[in-house]
C-alpha cells in the first residue's frame, strides 16, 4: 500500500506550522497591554475607583471628625481603608469583565502558561490601584495639609499594594466564578490580606509620625515577607482556580 506523498506533511511544513509559544514575559505583558488599552478607552474602572475613594475619604472626614489632633494618628489608617475598599471595587470589576464577556475562556485557550494570566491580571490590577493612589495622595495632601508625597511613604504603599493585589487577583478569580460574586470578594480577601493592611498602616503611620526607616523595619520586613510568600503561593495555585 502506498501513501499519497502530497498529503503527508513534510518536516518543512511542520516547522512552518509551529509558531513557538510566546515566552512568559511576552504573554504577561500582552495581557497587561490588553487591560490597559481597554481601560484607556473608557476609564470605567479607574474613574469608579477614584470617585469611590474620594467619597470614602469624605465619609471618614465626618465619621472621625478629622481635625488636626485626630489626623496625626489616623492618616495612615484612613488612607489604607480607602485603598482597600477601592481596591476590591477594581479587583471585582476587572475579573467580572473577563468572566461576563467570555474573555476568560479565550485567555485560557491561548497556548500560554497559565501563570502568565495570573501575572498579567495582577500587574494590571496593580497598575489601576497605583493610578488611583497616585491621584488620592496629592488630593489628600491638599485637603488635609499634610505632605504625603514622600519617596519612603510611596515605597511602603507600593509594597502594600503589591501584596494586596496579588492575593486579590487570585481571590477575585475565585469569587467571579461563584454565585454570590461581588459580595464575596471582600469577605474572602480582607481576613487573608489582614497582615498587609496591618503592616502597611503601621509602617505608614510610623513614617508620618517622623520615624526613620530603621524604626519601621519590622512592619517593612513583614510586608516584604508577605509579598514574597503570597505571590509565590498565588502563582502556584492559580492553575487550580482557572481549571475547567
Amino acid at each position: 500500500m502506498r501513501f499519497a506523498r502530497s498529503t503527508y506533511p513534510t518536516p518543512q511544513l511542520i516547522d512552518n506550522m509551529k509558531t513557538p509559544a510566546p515566552s512568559l514575559w511576552k504573554a504577561t505583558f500582552a495581557i497587561v497591554r490588553k487591560d490597559l488599552a481597554a481601560e484607556f478607552r473608557s476609564f470605567e474602572l479607574v474613574s469608579a475607583m477614584l470617585v469611590f475613594s474620594l467619597l470614602v475619604i469624605i465619609i471618614f472626614n465626618f465619621a472621625l471628625e478629622l481635625n488636626i489632633e485626630v489626623r496625626k494618628t489616623v492618616n495612615a489608617g484612613v488612607l489604607w481603608a480607602t485603598f482597600a475598599f477601592a481596591g476590591t471595587l477594581g479587583l471585582n470589576r476587572s475579573m467580572s469583565v473577563e468572566k461576563d464577556r467570555g474573555c476568560m475562556d479565550g485567555l485560557l485557550l491561548a497556548p500560554v502558561d497559565r501563570s502568565a494570566i495570573f501575572f498579567g491580571k495582577a500587574l494590571s490590577n496593580l497598575a489601576f490601584m497605583l493610578v488611583v493612589e497616585a491621584i488620592v495622595l496629592p488630593v489628600y495632601s491638599l485637603l488635609y495639609n499634610v505632605n504625603l508625597l514622600r519617596l519612603d511613604l510611596v515605597g511602603v504603599i507600593l509594597l502594600g499594594s503589591i501584596g494586596y493585589t496579588s492575593v486579590g487577583t487570585l481571590l477575585s478569580t475565585m469569587s467571579a466564578q461563584t454565585r454570590t460574586r461581588e459580595i464575596l470578594l471582600p469577605i474572602l480577601l480582607f481576613p487573608v490580606a489582614m497582615p498587609v493592611l496591618l503592616a502597611s498602616v503601621k509602617a505608614c503611620s510610623g513614617l508620618l509620625a517622623g520615624d526613620a526607616i530603621e524604626d519601621i523595619l519590622t512592619p517593612l520586613n513583614l510586608l516584604i515577607v508577605y509579598d514574597v510568600v503570597f505571590i509565590a503561593v498565588a502563582f502556584m495555585v492559580f492553575d487550580y482556580v482557572v481549571e475547567e
Binding site: V167, L170, L171, P191, V192, A193, M194, P195, L198, A199, K202, P219, L222, V225, Y226, V229, F230, V233, V237
Partner: peptide
Amino acid sequence: LLGGLSAPITFMS
C-alpha cells in the same frame, strides 16, 4: 491553604 498561611503571619504582625 491561604488561610493557614495568613493566620500565623497576622499573629506575627
